[in-house]
Design a protein around this nucleic acid. Structure first.
Lengths: 163, 163
DNA sequence: GCTAATTACTTGCATTTGCAAATAATCCGC
DNA sequence: GCGGATTATTTGCAAATGCAAGTAATTAGC
């Protein structure tokens, strides 16, 4: 790594042997970039309902899955447990969700949509679909489906690392 | 929305008219989920170089694009400007990057890799590629390329909203 | 060439985050 | 059924974040 590595003076672009990293073809970059745009735009969109993005994620997950444990909700939303714990606390105070200790296992928490939360989801879901349509402008249904499927595969491929 | 909406007692799953939101087919969800897994796993991987994810994003962008302005770097990394300003400050103190006011327009900042930063990128790039390979396990080259291309399209589709 | 508007970044401040440690309830093997 | 793991969630704390407001340099209009 040190052999003949005198810094070239000729060009502006870095060089130092290493073939330039191809950011524009790097999958994590492409995913992050698309996700960030989606997130920023959609956050602003739903701000008028007084809902922030993480809250929407929780609401959407609960609408889709029904009531579930905090841990399940964390897995479902990709929100870290301690963050989620506090988030659900706030959302409970805002009457968006309801919390109750589970019968049977009283360590566990059962989180479900509260009535006002249901109303908010009902209002936002159409917007969400509109955004998805926008994101997929120019895609054939087959392409859109392929994209969904491949993203799921990527997700699964990264699943079994923790041991 | 209030008509006959007595809360059903029979089932556990929510209902309340609204067709259940299909989270598993919702593109923003799929993107966020894959991105979050990638981010968490890769963060841990590079922690042993004392580098955090956002720092890696900056380093990778600079390696790929060469020196650029803070604003460009913000666009390139999807990191918010004020966050990036402070991040680049820390990275400068850590000798990962170098900062200089631009000649010509002295408001602007020119940010480039410093020598130790280059070493760190050189060490991490192979890991990054390994992660990408892992994420794309079971993909044909054609599929991988299609995925990249579709993610770029999604990104572009969401570009022209701000007016 | 002077002033107003714009651009490029920085900073103050209130909040949110994430890790690690704490708490609380269950489970496991005798 | 008792004590030590284990699991589910919460909380303390330091650090990171994002918005809005501030600063500094440049450009535009006259």
């Amino acid at each position: 790594m040190t052999r003949g590595a005198r810094r070239s003076t000729r060009s502006f672009r870095q060089s130092e042997d290493l073939p330039v990293f191809e950011l524009g073809r790097f999958l994590p970059y492409l995913i992050n970039r698309a996700g960030a745009r989606l997130a920023v735009a959609f956050s602003k969109e739903i701000a008028r309902y007084g809902i922030e993005l993480q809250e929407w994620r929780v609401l959407a997950a609960l609408q889709a899955q029904g009531p579930c444990r905090l841990g399940d909700l964390a897995a479902l939303t990709s929100i870290e447990m301690s963050t989620l714990s506090r988030l659900v606390g706030r959302m409970t105070r805002a009457r968006l969700v309801e919390r109750a200790r589970e019968n049977g296992d009283r360590r566990a928490l059962q989180v479900g949509l509260a009535a006002p939360g249901r109303q908010v989801v009902a209002a936002i879901v159409p917007l969400a679909h509109e955004y998805e349509r926008l994101a997929l402008s120019g895609f054939t249904p087959g392409e859109a489906e392929a994209l969904r499927e491949m993203l799921s595969r990527v997700y699964r491929n990264l699943g079994g690392l923790p041991p």
